[in-house]
């Protein structure tokens, strides 16, 4: 089978439509992951062990199981409990929840990265807890987190094809439906790969820049 540029031109609008949805899903899930991750990180730091322990277990469980199965769980099991979600919402919740467990680690590392002396100095100068966080800890903790968070944004973008398994019409699903109706697999599949490769090569450049600008978290 030969590569056919005419066919490429034909399917391009459909694929671009899929790409648009892919980007929307990525951004929405990223917001969910950023917010929920902060929640997880704070809950794990909680002095109350009845909060910290169960949250730690939930985070470990979500990290140790496949995103695809979690998506199936949200998409197939929740409706039996009376919670019927549209595929897009189910996908965003699933992706956001899964990656929140990763961003939580970034927040944790970022906060622990602030030297203990800074906390002690804040206490010595009689700052309130709020002032300590707003004026001392956050300004030092956040910049090194930015590259690490961006890294997970890219990872989420690459994982979006999984949502095709729960019938979200993103890039991969558009490509599959085009391929199945025309019996031509080479062009759609290769183009999807090319799209992802191009986007991620660009994002690697941006990531390097972010790392230079904000530094990176020490291991």
């Amino acid at each position: 089978m030969e590569w056919d540029w005419g066919f490429v031109a034909d399917i391009m609008p459909t694929l671009l439509q899929g790409l648009k949805l892919t980007l929307i899903v990525t951004l929405l899930s990223a917001v969910v992951a950023a917010v929920l991750g902060l929640g997880f990180a704070i809950a794990r730091r909680s002095a109350n062990r009845n909060v910290a322990r169960p949250v730690a277990f939930v985070v470990e469980f979500l990290r140790g199981t496949p995103l695809l199965v979690q998506l199936y769980f949200i998409f197939y099991v929740l409706p039996d409990a009376g919670i019927l979600l549209p595929p897009l919402v189910a996908g965003v919740i699933g992706m956001g929840l899964h990656y929140a467990t990763y961003t939580a680690e970034v927040y944790r590392a970022g906060i622990e990265n602030v030297p203990k002396g800074q906390w002690e100095a804040a206490r010595a100068t009689n700052l309130t807890m709020r002032q300590t966080w707003v004026h001392v800890v956050i300004p030092q903790a956040v910049p090194p987190m930015i590259p690490a968070l961006a890294n997970y944004l890219i990872a989420m973008f690459k994982e979006t094809p999984l949502l095709s398994a729960i019938t979200v019409l993103e890039l991969m699903n558009q490509a599959k439906s085009v391929a199945n109706s025309s019996y031509r697999y080479i062009e759609p599949m290769t183009l999807v790969g090319a799209f992802f490769l191009a986007m991620s090569l660009v994002s690697v450049v941006i990531l390097r820049w972010l790392e230079r600008r904000y530094g990176r978290l020490g291991k």
Binding site: E159, M172, V192, F196
Partner: peptide, 9 residues
């Protein structure tokens, strides 16, 4: 640069 899903397919 591409995900496992795309590579597998």
């Amino acid at each position: 640069g591409t995900s496992i899903f795309v590579q597998l397919f």
